[in-house]
């Protein structure tokens, strides 16, 4: 037997556990702010994801990736999602986002982002009604183009007094989880850094006239809302950093994050959708094969014509 006989302590299962640990502060914040319904959503979504995984790839259950998809999809759901819809979201993440492609490592799109996008198309009524509700107060997302929404301050953005999805219950918990992932080297720090800084840059340089008529005026010129509201932070730390759907080379991942940031801002500014982060993740995922082709695959010397034997 030949070497190497040593192995890095980092395992794929360990990576999944680290993501779950990193998501825990955000889940706790959601339960604190929303109460039992949030707990019911988490349980249902994970159950939905695990159930499909058990049906299709029973032997892969142990790697924990189904649980991760279930937890992440909860972060992306509106705060008023009923348990059945959360379960459906979890089941969609695995049943549509992962299993048909051949299981772990084969899916081109992030399962949680795909599930959220598909359900948004199938059940728009649930996703677009102004149902965001914190502490029993219903309001519209500041990213929505609703006239009634108001510009939030910094403290509201960081502590989470901004209407949004479950993962926005307390944005600082997402940042905390993200930092845990960076420190543990679960994720590549370049991805959130490139994504968030490109978003901030675009928000600052975007000319005032570049917005669609009727959009709230604070969407131009102030990066804070673009960074902390909507799914920006979740995308930065939990979606774009999914190893399966991001490019393999570190350089390419920076470009990949920049594509996601540009797409996020384009959707926010030029379409009626309130939040472009999840769709932008899918756009960036779609570019991953191209990034891989121009970076790692480039390094391959084409095979020489094989001399025929005999």
């Amino acid at each position: 037997m030949k070497g190497p006989f040593l192995r890095s302590p980092q395992s794929t299962r360990g990576l999944m556990i680290q993501v779950l640990i990193a998501a825990t502060p955000a889940l706790i914040a959601a339960v604190v702010r929303l109460g039992a319904p949030a707990a019911a959503m988490i349980v249902s979504a994970v159950a939905g994801a695990v159930a499909i995984e058990a049906l299709v790839h029973r032997r892969q259950l142990g790697d924990g990736s189904a649980v991760v998809s279930g937890v992440i999809v909860v972060l992306l759901l509106p705060a008023t999602t009923p348990p059945w819809l959360a379960a459906l979201a979890g089941a969609t993440a695995i049943g549509l986002g992962k299993a048909p492609w051949g299981g772990l490592g084969k899916n081109p799109f992030n399962p949680a982002a795909l599930a959220r996008a598909v359900l948004m198309v199938v059940l728009p009524a649930h996703f677009f009604a102004p149902m965001w509700r914190w502490d029993a107060v219903t309001a519209a997302s500041p990213l929505s183009k609703e006239v009634g929404a108001t510009a939030p301050g910094w403290s509201a953005l960081i502590l989470g007094d901004v209407p949004g999805c479950v993962g926005q219950a307390a944005p600082w918990t997402i940042v905390l989880g993200g930092l845990i992932l960076v420190v543990l080297r679960t994720i590549d720090w370049r991805v959130p850094l490139a994504y968030l800084s490109t978003i901030a840059l675009i928000a600052v340089v975007l000319p005032g006239g570049a917005r669609v008529a009727g959009h709230a005026p604070w969407l131009i010129g102030d990066p804070s809302i673009h960074l902390f509201a909507g799914g920006t932070l979740i995308a930065a730390f939990f979606l774009l950093t999914d190893p399966v759907t991001a490019p393999m080379s570190a350089t390419a991942r920076v470009g990949f994050a920049a594509v996601a940031a540009t797409a996020t801002m384009a959707i926010r500014q030029f379409t009626p959708y309130p939040d472009g982060a999840v769709l932008a993740v899918l756009v960036a995922n779609a570019c991953t094969p191209w990034f891989d082709r121009v970076t790692v695959e480039r390094r391959i010397t084409p095979p020489r014509a094989k001399r025929s034997r005999g």
């Binding site: 990576l15 790697d63 490592g105 190893p243 399966v244 080379s249 790692v296 390094r299 391959i300 010397t301």
Partner: peptide
């Protein structure tokens, strides 16, 4: 052993910069 999650750690680690998983799928002179 678990399925490759395309994390690219091997590509970053290879001191001669080989795209390891791609070469294992489709071996060439590299």
């Amino acid at each position: 052993e678990q399925p490759c999650i395309r994390c690219g750690r091997c590509v970053d680690a290879c001191p001669v910069g080989l795209p390891v998983p791609l070469l294992i799928e489709r071996p060439g002179p590299d």
